Each structure stands twice: as structure tokens, then as C-alpha cells.
Simulated assay, not measured.
Amino acid sequence: MTTEPQKHQLASGIFAEDLPKISLHDHLDGGLRPETIVELAAKIGYELPAADAQGLKDWFTSSANSGSLVDYLKTFDVTCAVMQNEEGLTRVAREFVQDLAADGVIYGEIRWAPEQHLSNGLSLDEVVVAVQAGLDQGVEDAAAEGRSIRVGQLITAMRHADRAQEIAELAVRHRDNGVVGFDIAGAELGFPPANHAGAFRYLAENFFPATIHAGEADGLDSIRGALVDGHALRLGHGVRLAEDITIDSQDDQNTYVMVGRLAQWVKDRGIALELSPSSNLQTGAISAWGDSLADHPFDLFYQLGFNVTVNPDNRLMSGTTVSRELSLLADEFSYDLDDLEQFQLNAASVTFLPLEDRVELALAIEDGFEALRAAHSVR
């Protein structure tokens, strides 16, 4: 059963949930329903930190608000524990798509690490197939409710492990069965993309796209490594790219900045930043600039012309949705519908879909926004 999201009304009177949206940075093991965790944990005899769904939801939120990526990642021990068999994987994937569709997402790339779901004896290929079955069911469920959504898997290797080559080969093997891209995730500091250079070379040789977590818990060297050693087409978060942007001076009307060579390269090539504002606050990724949304460099990137996108990262841990993130940004930076539409068009342009499909997504976004403007008499 689909869980209807909380509605977030924009200044225009339009609800953010009604906007056609794209989610590029959305972790499968970070988007479970608390009720589902409770039920699946009971079946396998796994002891949870809270007995009921509301208590569990509160535990995730408080645990994730640590200001540390390492502590934030510990909450995934619980979600992964109930995703170790076909039933758990398929159900979680199915509900994940249902919840995306209920939030108005028309295309989502769902990232997860198969190597973390093998403790009950499933193989890497079996877990990918189980997740794809759930995703397919979720798409069918959405269609039955009159919602249109398309999804793709981003197969992730854990950067502190030594299985990247194997996982890269897994991703390519399933490229015709729902897998659209590759990622590395986990503890960023001390585990650079160069450690997996062979896997990234293999992906490039097979013309298979990669997005890499970089610029979240580590700085410019990590971003540089993602681009040079990982051949990344997008940056997972990438928020610390702002370290390469210096505010030279400002007056009442203008801010003058100096953009470093790395940041200029990212901007000029249209390399997307998969920004996740709420998550970036929780993990301390923007601590160099402050601890509130007003301090987030999102608007700086946007005003300078970077290819910014808006993402939830982990909907359970951050208690968020794509719509909520858009609403928070709109309130903080006075964005209007044109701005929110641009964020979605940015995302459409960098999905790991064929060009023709990206064009169709962009048209669907434009048509959807225009229909809402007309319905609400918004110019």
C-alpha cells in the first residue's frame, strides 16, 4: 500500500508533490518504511533499537543528526539487516518505487550495494534480480494508481572493500536488466577512487556510466580523483567543490567570486552536482560554511551556473522527500517555479538514459510544469 507523503505548499499555491520530478541520488537502504522494517525484523528475529514504527522512525532521525558521516552510516546496519533475502529485497524495492511515485517522481535512479546483501547465501546476481523484480512491481503498482514512473538501478561498490572490479562486472552484466550506472559509496576519507582504477577503466571500456560519491566527507582531492581516476559523469553530493570558489568581495547588489580550475572544469563540462541539502547538514558536509540551510552553497552554485540537482539521499534517515527538499530550498532562497523547473531539467539532462529518453523526460517536465501554471494561473 502506497504511503501518501506530507504535502508541501509553495508560494505559488502549488504543492511540491504535484511537480514532475527526478531523483538521481536516492539510496535503496536509506528509503525503507519503518513499518516494513518492524515486520521484516520480526520474521528474521532481528532486534531493533525501537519496538514500534514511530519509535524506530524517531531513532533513525536522531541517530542521523550526528554531524558525522561515519555515525550517519551506522544506521544502515539496521536497514541492511532486513534486506538479506529475496522477500526483503523485493518488498523494499517495490515500496521504494511506490513512495517515489506518490511524491511525484517520474524518473528515479536507485543506488544500492549488492555486496551488502549476501549474508543469507544469495549471490550477487540473485540480489540484483530480486531488487529488479521489486522495482518492476512498484512501477506496475504506480501505473495502476494512474502514476507514471520509470526507474533504474545504480549498482554501488563499497569503497573501503576490495570488490569494485567484481561489482563493476556485475553492473555491466545486468545493463539490459534495469541497471543504468555504477557508483562507489561508504567512508570517503582515505578511500579514494584511485583504489579502484581498474574497475573504472573497465567501465569506461564498456561505455558504462559512473557517478561517484565525492566532496561530502572529503574535499577537492576526492572530487579530482572522481573525475580523473573514476571518469565520473556526475558527482554524488560534490558540495565541497565550494572550497574551490572564493568570495572575493561583495557590495549591496553583487557578490564577486573567484572560481578555481577544478570548479571551473566541473561547471564548464556541465558535470552535475547531486546535492542533498538536508543530508549535507546532517553529516556536517557543509560545516566549513555553517550549520543551517542558509549556509549551504547550493544557491552559490546555482547563481554561478553549475548544473545543480536536488535529491533526498536517504529519505528515512533525513525524514525527507524530493518535494520536501525543493520546498525547503524555495523557502530559504526564494526560488520560484522557473527555478524548480530548471533543477528538474538539469537532472533530466544527466540521467544515465539514452539521449532520446532524456529529451522525453525534459518534455514531460516542461509539460507538467506548464499544466500546473495554467491550472493555478501562475505566470
Score class of each variant (00 low, 15 high):
residue 343 F to D: 12
residue 30 G to K: 12
residue 14 I to P: 02
residue 167 I to V: 15
residue 177 N to M: 07
residue 363 L to G: 01
residue 229 D to V: 00
residue 228 V to W: 13
residue 23 S to I: 02
residue 295 D to N: 11
residue 219 G to T: 09
residue 354 P to M: 10
residue 259 V to N: 09
residue 45 G to C: 10
residue 118 L to I: 07
residue 155 I to E: 09
residue 167 I to S: 07
residue 69 L to Q: 06
residue 7 K to L: 12
residue 145 E to K: 13
residue 137 Q to R: 14
residue 168 A to P: 05
residue 38 V to G: 09
residue 312 P to H: 03
residue 47 E to H: 10
residue 116 Q to C: 12
residue 305 G to L: 12
residue 203 L to I: 10
residue 21 K to Y: 10
residue 235 L to E: 08
residue 244 D to E: 06
residue 21 K to N: 02
residue 75 T to S: 14
residue 348 A to N: 10
residue 217 A to C: 05
residue 90 T to S: 15
residue 37 I to C: 13
residue 187 A to L: 14
residue 369 F to Q: 03
residue 50 A to W: 04
residue 136 D to Y: 02
residue 25 H to I: 13
residue 99 D to Q: 10
residue 12 S to V: 09
residue 231 H to Q: 14
residue 283 T to V: 15
residue 62 S to P: 01
residue 315 R to W: 09
residue 74 K to F: 00
residue 339 D to R: 08
residue 31 G to V: 08
residue 33 R to F: 11
residue 140 E to N: 11
residue 24 L to V: 02
residue 364 A to Q: 15
residue 52 D to W: 12
residue 340 L to A: 09
residue 299 D to W: 01
residue 321 T to V: 12
residue 284 G to Y: 01
residue 275 L to C: 12
residue 42 A to D: 14
residue 230 G to F: 04
residue 179 V to F: 00
residue 148 S to A: 15
residue 178 G to H: 08
residue 28 L to K: 09
residue 157 A to T: 06
residue 342 Q to D: 10
residue 185 A to G: 13
residue 111 R to G: 10
residue 260 G to K: 07
residue 180 V to Y: 04
residue 276 S to F: 00
residue 199 A to W: 10
residue 161 A to Y: 08
residue 238 G to A: 10
residue 102 A to L: 11
residue 142 A to Q: 05
residue 224 R to K: 15
